[in-house]
Write a protein that binds this DNA or RNA. Structure first.
Lengths: 165, 165
DNA sequence: TCTGTAATGTTATAATGTAACATTATTTGG
DNA sequence: CCAAATAATGTTACATTATAACATTACAGA
């Protein structure tokens, strides 16, 4: 079953982000319910902080915000929550930035393709079977068995190009 | 002009690595000569250290080795040399490992596709126009202008699979 | 040879991430 | 329900990765 999904598109600055956030939290709750996992208040709070925007968020920035209202937070607090969220596909790590973005599609495990705008910082995620399949195909040619694919593309999004930044 | 190059393949443990190293240094010298750049002894030494194997090498490991014979080395010594080598396409950074590998093809600027074996640590590099082109094509569909592509694939190489690791 | 630039030295510190063990909360079998 | 086991969080300390800022030295071109 081939799928070419746009998991999160670039969006005008005016998009109603609150909707992204609430739907992501709702999806995360559903996902954890079904899987018998605990989306504890701490984990949910970290997820909300990652979802504050479509820009990748740094662990220590999450930590700073988490401390306001949860003063016992320390680096392991954040890294553990992020690890849990990553394992569940609720957030992805952008390796080239050491930063994290929310994923709106936790239902199926995937390693998406990320398009990062150098101007506005937005990250769009695709889960594109053509890209994925081509990488697998090329790997197969030399007997390489793929586990995990990281595709992170830097550039300039349509909106920023239009507005001449 | 389409090209699908294997810049560095997986190789049996018995491959003559000295040859990789000497040819990489030779290519680097030629590249710098042509470009009017200085492959200083320090930079050359760092390049040799990165090329000691086909496994990604960490900056602080380079530093430790560099200190033996060049006691004034400090972190900036290594990072500056690595930055220079990256700009010249003589090494690539593997973002998901915070580590560096040599590139045998400095002639044309490219951002390759890296296949990293989880068992033996080897990294193979392709510069595959099909993968690259497909990513560009998908990006174009939503008006994204690509600057730089990072493709890092984890998995298991043929040799390790054969030897049942 | 002078002079500007590039490269390197040096010190300090920022940013990112983990180990190890203590404590608290939750689940589960009796 | 209770006790034991497990999971989650707290806490301290430290390891790893990377950069800022300024001083000094080496080199290339006029």
């Amino acid at each position: 079953m081939k799928k070419n999904k746009v998991i999160s598109p670039f969006k005008p600055a005016t998009h109603k982000h609150q909707e992204c956030l609430t739907s992501a939290i709702k999806a995360a709750k559903a996902h954890c319910d079904i899987s018998g996992l605990r989306l504890t208040p701490l984990r949910q709070r970290v997820l909300e902080l990652v979802w504050q925007s479509h820009e990748p968020v740094k662990a220590y920035d999450v930590l700073d915000q988490l401390k306001q209202g949860h003063s016992s937070s320390a680096p392991p607090t954040v890294y553990r929550a992020l690890d849990f969220l990553q394992e569940q596909g609720l957030v992805h790590k952008i390796e080239s930035l050491n930063a994290y973005v929310g994923c709106g599609n936790p239902e199926e495990i995937h390693s998406g393709q990320f398009f990062i705008c150098r101007d506005c910082g937005f990250v769009a995620e695709l889960d594109d079977a053509d890209i994925s399949g081509l990488i697998e195909k090329k790997a197969n040619r030399f007997g390489f068995k793929v586990d995990n694919k990281m595709v992170e593309i830097n550039g300039h999004c349509q909106e920023c190009r239009d507005s001449g930044k």
